[in-house]
Computed example of a mutant assay.
Amino acid sequence: MMELNFSYFPQLSTERLLLRSLQPSDANEIFALRSDDTINKYINRPKAKTIEDAEQFITKILNAIENNQSIWWAITLKTESTLAGGILLWNINKEKNEAEIGYELLPHYHGKGIAREAIEKVIEYGFDQMNLQSIVALVHKENIASVKLLEKNNFIFDADTESIEDKDMLMYKLTATNFDLQHNYSERTSE
């Protein structure tokens, strides 16, 4: 069974992005994320109504990280300090070495390849550092942009959806084996 320890927060970096710890100062952007109709269209959660809702969410996330239950990164561009979105590994199943990935961006950042870049780095962390065997994603069947994003990152539709209560949701999965094959192929072709 896998052991988790997020006491030293794993800040991640890509060519354009810094994936950092969520801070209380991110409350305005968190409120924007959690209250925006476009972002919340396909997410089954209560919308934030006040800045206090955002502050409570930040506290909840920081407590979950402290208790090694999940890991949530603030997505920022290296050229900006403000939060553009968030990405997390959660619903961690230690017996199966599996986690669920989730992600969201403020609308201003959509269509710029930011989510794809963040997902690539987080799945690399999940497989290489957390030793996950699989990463799953639940996506609303009408959220075509998110489905395409998962497929670009080599997630495969998983027809075994009996465990999903909401029948409008689809499950996609990426296994460590498929990740390793794709990762090794990409490294060989870039040399």
Rank of each mutant, 00 (worst) to 15 (best):
M1H: 11
E3C: 08
L4Y: 02
F6M: 05
S7K: 08
Y8S: 13
F9C: 02
P10T: 03
L12T: 01
L12R: 01
S13A: 07
S13V: 07
R16K: 15
L17P: 00
L18F: 10
L18C: 13
L18M: 15
L22Y: 06
Q23I: 09
A27L: 06
A27C: 08
A27N: 09
N28V: 00
N28K: 09
I30F: 09
F31Y: 08
F31P: 00
L33T: 05
S35I: 00
D36P: 03
D37A: 13
K41E: 12
K41N: 07
K41H: 06
Y42A: 02
Y42N: 11
I43V: 07
I43E: 05
R45N: 02
K47R: 11
E52A: 14
Q56I: 01
F57V: 07
F57Y: 14
I58Q: 00
I58M: 04
K60S: 14
K60W: 11
N63T: 13
N63R: 11
N63Q: 14
I65L: 01
I65W: 04
N67I: 01
N67S: 10
N67L: 09
Q69M: 04
W72P: 02
W73V: 00
L77R: 11
T79Q: 13
L83G: 11
A84P: 10
G86H: 03
L88H: 13
W90F: 12
W90H: 15
W90M: 11
I92Q: 04
I92F: 03
K94M: 01
E95W: 09
K96M: 11
A99I: 03
E100N: 03
I101W: 01
I101K: 05
G102I: 03
Y103V: 04
E104W: 01
E104S: 08
L105A: 06
L106D: 04
P107I: 05
H110D: 10
K112A: 09
G113R: 05
G113S: 08
R116G: 15
E120R: 08
V122Q: 01
I123E: 05
I123C: 07
E124L: 06
E124M: 07
Y125G: 03
Y125E: 02
F127E: 12
D128T: 13
M130V: 02
L132R: 05
L132I: 05
L132F: 08
Q133E: 15
V136Q: 02
A137T: 08
A137P: 10
V139Y: 00
N143D: 08
V147H: 04
V147Q: 06
L149N: 03
E151V: 12
K152H: 11
N154H: 14
F157V: 06
D158G: 03
E162D: 13
S163A: 12
S163F: 12
I164M: 05
D166Y: 06
D166W: 08
K167H: 12
M169D: 04
M169S: 07
L170W: 05
M171E: 07
L174G: 02
L174N: 03
T177E: 15
L181G: 05
Q182H: 10
Q182V: 11
Q182R: 08
N184K: 12
N184P: 03
E187C: 12
E187S: 13
R188N: 15
S190R: 09
E191W: 11
E191I: 12
E191A: 14
